[in-house]
């Protein structure tokens, strides 16, 4: 490691810690969210330094972009008295007691961190993990990008469950809230124009990431996140899908990813005897089919999470009143 990269890494590490601290400690919640988004972008830079470009793409699109948008939207909907300030200790608390109880977690966490740091440093400095196994089986996996091979082939089971988790989270959100489906005027001509110009580009980028994921950094999650970001941008610009599309078509698109995954899992279980064990000659095609369906579902689910409620409930309420 040369001196220059060492200085860069140390500065990046310190900035990450400082941004995290400011995001958690600054009294203004709006500022905290902006700092958190900046933190996410610097995290993406750290992933690149750790030779993990796939993670960097996912972090930049999801960790910084979508999470930031979700937090901002939630902050805007909070009751105005609650949205402003946040004291670590509510001011009406007994002042003399503050010392004892505020230092207790700090000391405990300092001890825990020291222990964790010691454990991390005592690990062997050289370990290949599973990288040799991945490299040995990459030929028959159907993808030459090791991360895509792991996600869609070697550990396809995890990815299947994860897409289901995404769907479950949306079901949770839908059962709690209903969405406002009235068309809104765009907040400004700049955002309106920008959304119109950027949406086709986002779709193109998503398709590119999906296709390139087989042999270079990219893949279903990154593509789905970009698609989701296009949806968020459209929603921010005031666009709402027609109510006819919100019932069955939306639900079909939401489940197509998990559904195709489950179908492929069952077929491979019946034919090959092992769940999600693809025949090497068809592995590439199967991965592409799975990824395409997953991308569409992930993108629409993320946009629907941003909308933040069941789009059909709203109509039902309107019909009653």
């Amino acid at each position: 490691m040369t001196l220059l990269t060492w200085i860069f890494d140390s500065l990046l590490g310190l900035s990450l810690l400082w941004l995290a601290w400011r995001a958690l400690a600054c009294p203004n919640l709006f500022k905290a969210i902006v700092l958190f988004v900046a933190f996410g972008l610097l995290m993406a830079l750290a992933w690149v330094r750790l030779a993990a470009p796939d993670v960097a793409l996912a972090e930049a699109a999801i960790g910084a972009g979508l999470t930031g948008a979700l937090l901002m939207a939630a902050l805007a909907k909070l009751h105005p008295t609650e949205a402003h300030n946040d004291f670590a200790v509510p001011p009406e608390k007994n002042v003399t007691k503050v010392w004892s109880w505020q230092w207790l977690p700090a000391i405990t966490i300092l001890l825990v961190t020291t222990g964790l740091g010691y454990v991390v440093l005592s690990l062997p400095p050289y370990a290949t993990g599973l990288s040799t196994e991945v490299a040995a089986n990459l030929e028959i996996s159907g993808a030459s990008n090791p991360v895509t091979a792991v996600l869609l082939n070697f550990r396809g089971y995890d990815t299947l469950l994860e897409i289901v988790v995404l769907l479950l989270a949306l079901l949770g959100v839908w059962s709690l809230n209903s969405a406002d489906l009235d068309h809104k005027a765009a907040p400004g001509i700049v955002l309106d124009t920008l959304a119109r110009l950027l949406t086709p580009i986002f779709i193109l980028v998503a398709a590119y990431l999906l296709w390139v994921g087989a042999h270079a950094p990219g893949g279903a999650f990154q593509a789905g996140a970009v698609l989701g970001a296009a949806g968020v941008l459209l929603l921010l610009a005031g666009w709402r899908p027609r109510t006819g599309l919100m019932a069955l078509p939306l639900r079909l698109v939401l489940v197509i990813g998990p559904a195709i995954f489950v179908i492929v899992a069952m077929l491979t279980l019946l034919i090959a005897g092992q769940m999600l064990e693809y025949p090497p000659t068809q592995a590439g095609a199967l991965i592409l089919i799975l990824e395409t369906a997953a991308t569409v579902s992930i993108g629409v689910t993320l946009a629907a999470l941003f909308l933040g409620g069941d789009p059909r409930k709203n109509n039902r309420n309107k019909n009653h009143t």
Binding site: L78, V147, V150, E162, V165, L168, G172, V173, F221, F306
Partner: peptide
Amino acid sequence: APPDAVPHAMVITGIVVAVSATALALTLML
């Protein structure tokens, strides 16, 4: 040598799970 791809894949999975958990938590908070 190139780094181990398995933790990378797990972390990508984790990032997506984290954003869905965040969305659900924010809805509960609202």
